[in-house]
Design a binder for these strands. Structure first.
Length: 385
DNA sequence: CCTCCACAGGAAGCGCAGGAGT
DNA sequence: ACTCCTGCGCTTCCTGTGGAGG
């Protein structure tokens, strides 16, 4: 039997307002989320004042209100500042650098209705917009779905360096804590903030350790060491786990500063080993050359004004060429060798500094970032020298 | 002051692989 | 299946630069 609309509307139902229960609904007040909202606001506010933008990643299991929180924040910010815009993207749909840029730019660039524009074009357009003192906040929901995330992060952080006025902030949302492991170290360090690091630590400690077994000062030390090192959460967690293991092996009940300190040395070597083993061959050869000369002594070691342990770019390249000959490989050009040095520095395996007084000409001085014996050992095994 | 040194790092271009479009 | 395009890893060429040395 047919029921009229009036009858349906008049009938008292169980629901007061069905839309409230829809997953897309954003309630006016989010209980227990005020703290989080404040944090996000504090991270975004410099961006709105036209200062250097910051990035942030929210993570947590589905249904914990990440998307909801961020939508609330968007509502509050919308229209507060001129020359400012927020873009919410679900990366399940916009899952590549190209698609995301295209989606963001569409409202500004009418020609984009047609496809067929290259990435450089999109890049230029974005740069153009940001340069008009425009602040952009890009929210990437389900960020782990993006195929070329490293490139995207690199592009966006790089564009921030190039703009004169505005800038772009990235807010990533992810369900998986593990997704960060898939990130390039460079992207990682530009994405993570210290506050996030602390949050990760506390959350993980609660989940992974018995109550109160880690002394407060040990946690502080871990955070301090990590911040000083790279700010990489992966490092902090490894440190804690190792410290826990070492304390356990000694039959201790609590994890103290000394355990963390002892763990640091071990973790450093492990992490180096991990990094090195995933390095392309030529990078490894260059690194080996650096370790070798460090151990045998630099040709210029006795030069005044040069700090001990620093090597000359030129002598390393010569050593590298010799090693290649020994391995029956064709050495790469000097130009590309310099890029290798950049990569190695980026990974924290070496440190470089430009030469100054006391050195003829203009060159780069290179120092190995870990114990040379360790590095030589690790690479030797890998390369089979 | 000029010149040389010992590089730095940008620009152009090349061969190749993988993906998109048709 | 075919072409076309793009990115990648790399080479070659070239100009720039700050200090040493005469």
């Amino acid at each position: 039997m047919a029921t009229s609309f009036e009858e349906v509307l008049a009938k008292a139902t169980i629901f007061r307002d069905v839309t409230v229960l829809s997953p897309h609904f954003v309630p006016k007040i989010l209980p227990f989320r005020d703290l989080q909202i404040n944090e996000i606001v504090s991270i975004l506010s410099p961006a709105l004042k036209g200062q250097k933008p910051r990035n942030l990643i929210l993570y947590g299991k589905t249904g914990t209100g990440k998307t909801c929180t961020i939508k609330k924040v968007m509502e509050e910010f919308q229209g507060i500042a001129k020359n400012q815009s927020m873009h919410y993207l679900n990366c399940r749909i916009y899952n590549s650098r190209y698609r995301i840029l295209q989606k963001i730019l569409r409202p500004y660039v009418p020609e984009l209705e047609k496809t067929g524009f290259g990435l450089p074009f999109l890049y230029e357009k974005l740069l153009e917009i940001l340069n008009k003192e425009h602040q952009m906040v890009i929210i990437l929901d389900e960020i782990d779905m993006i195929k070329d995330l490293d490139e995207l992060v690199y592009t966006l952080t790089r564009i921030n360096d190039e703009t004169t006025a505005g800038g772009a902030s990235i807010i990533g949302i992810s369900n998986k804590l593990s997704f960060k492991d898939a990130l390039d170290p460079r992207s990682k360090s530009s994405l993570y903030e210290t506050e996030q690091l602390q949050q990760i630590l506390f959350q993980r400690i609660e989940e992974g350790f018995e109550k109160d077994v880690i002394e407060k000062s040990a946690i502080n030390l871990t955070a301090a060491l990590t911040a000083q090192e790279s700010g990489d959460a992966r490092y902090a967690l490894k440190l804690l786990v190792k410290a826990g293991e070492m304390a356990e092996a000694k039959g201790k009940v609590k994890v103290t500063d000394e355990d963390v300190e002892a763990a640091r040395r071990k973790v450093e070597k492990d992490l180096a080993a991990e990094t090195i083993s995933s390095l392309p061959e030529n990078h490894q050869i260059v690194l080996f050359a650096i370790a070798k000369i460090t151990l045998s002594g630099s040709r210029y070691a006795r030069l005044d004004n040069i700090d001990e342990g620093f090597l000359f770019s030129g002598e390393i390249y010569e050593e590298y060429e010799m090693l290649c000959k020994k391995l029956r490989k064709k050495p790469r050009s000097a130009r590309w060798y310099k890029e290798y040095l950049n990569d190695l520095e980026m990974l924290g395996l070496i440190t470089t500094t430009p030469s100054s007084k006391g050195v003829r000409g203009h060159t780069t001085l290179i120092k190995i970032g870990h114990k040379a014996e360790d590095i030589e050992d690790l690479v030797k095994g890998k390369l089979g020298i």
